[in-house]
Measured scan of single mutants.
Amino acid sequence: MDTYKLILNGKTLKGETTTEAVDAATAEKVFKHAANEHGVHGHWTYDPETKTFTVTE
Rank of each mutant, 00 (worst) to 15 (best):
M1C: 12
M1L: 13
D2K: 13
D2W: 10
T3L: 12
T3C: 13
Y4S: 03
K5M: 06
L6Q: 02
I7N: 04
I7Q: 04
L8I: 15
N9I: 15
K11F: 13
K11G: 08
K11D: 09
T12E: 10
T12I: 11
T12P: 04
T12K: 12
T12H: 14
T12L: 11
L13G: 08
L13E: 07
K14I: 11
K14R: 12
G15N: 09
G15H: 15
E16A: 09
E16S: 11
T17V: 15
T17C: 15
T18W: 13
T18H: 09
T18A: 06
T19Q: 05
T19E: 03
E20F: 11
E20K: 12
E20L: 14
A21R: 02
A21Y: 02
V22C: 11
A24F: 13
A24V: 11
A25H: 08
A25G: 08
A25D: 09
T26R: 05
T26L: 05
A27I: 01
A27D: 00
A27T: 00
E28C: 15
E28G: 05
K29V: 11
K29F: 08
K29Q: 11
V30K: 08
V30A: 09
F31K: 00
F31I: 01
K32M: 10
K32S: 05
K32V: 08
K32C: 10
H33N: 13
H33D: 13
H33C: 11
A34L: 15
A34H: 15
A34P: 01
A34F: 15
A34D: 05
A34E: 09
A35Y: 06
A35S: 04
A35I: 09
A35E: 02
N36E: 14
N36H: 13
E37I: 13
E37V: 14
E37L: 14
E37Y: 10
H38Y: 15
G39W: 04
G39S: 06
G39T: 04
V40I: 15
V40W: 11
H41M: 11
H41D: 12
H41T: 13
H41S: 12
G42D: 01
G42A: 03
G42M: 03
H43M: 13
H43R: 12
H43D: 14
W44R: 00
W44Y: 02
T45F: 08
T45E: 12
Y46H: 01
Y46F: 08
D47H: 06
D47R: 04
D47G: 02
D47T: 06
D47K: 04
D47Q: 06
P48N: 07
P48G: 06
T50S: 10
T50W: 05
T52R: 02
F53E: 01
F53N: 00
T54H: 06
V55K: 01
V55T: 02
V55L: 08
V55S: 01
T56V: 07
T56M: 06
E57G: 04
E57L: 06
E57D: 08
E57F: 06
E57R: 03
E57P: 06
E57K: 03
